[in-house]
Amino acid sequence: MNNIIIKTYPAPPINKKEVLRYAGGGNDDNTLKLLEECIKEISNALTYKVCYCELSSKTNKDICDFDIFQVKSQNLATNLKDCNKVIVMGATVGITLDRLIAKYSRISPAKALILQALGAERIEALCDTFCEDIKKSLKITLKPRFSAGYGDLPLDTQNSIFTLLNLPKNIGLTLNDSMLMSPSKSVTAFIGIQEV
């Protein structure tokens, strides 16, 4: 309990269909060629890092009490209703992708769009990999990931998550004044634990 763990994963397989869906569709030869080009370009550019911590969880009406801090949110409370424990996690695929997106958005918006979509697919794939890993190793089932900004869970919950997990130091994930994360392809979330 309360112990902060950092994990690095190998790259999960890429779901190209999902990337194209994020990019707004299209599977003509030109788009596919561009996608392959982007996949090649990011092949050594991404890191797959997760930092997490297990906390106790109690809910009372719209208050979620994690012992170390509390959050007021009816939606999260509903999500965590049957859970005594919760995982608080931060994940990122790293800053290099942001540089590539910045570069191509200046010289090739089409490529920037595909990279953006690829990044979205990558970070989701990382989160899925992490959840599968936790489920297997702890022999538990998990509730869906719930992030700050979903429903009535205030965005500034990010402050608590960042302080708890020390994300800048642990995985190089930072928060700006508007609660946006850098690297941009990153996720923080609460995940309710259901003991099997």
Partner: peptide
């Protein structure tokens, strides 16, 4: 689709 629109625009 959007990627094609952008490639044409480029």
């Amino acid at each position: 689709y959007l990627p094609q629109l952008l490639m044409s625009a480029e």
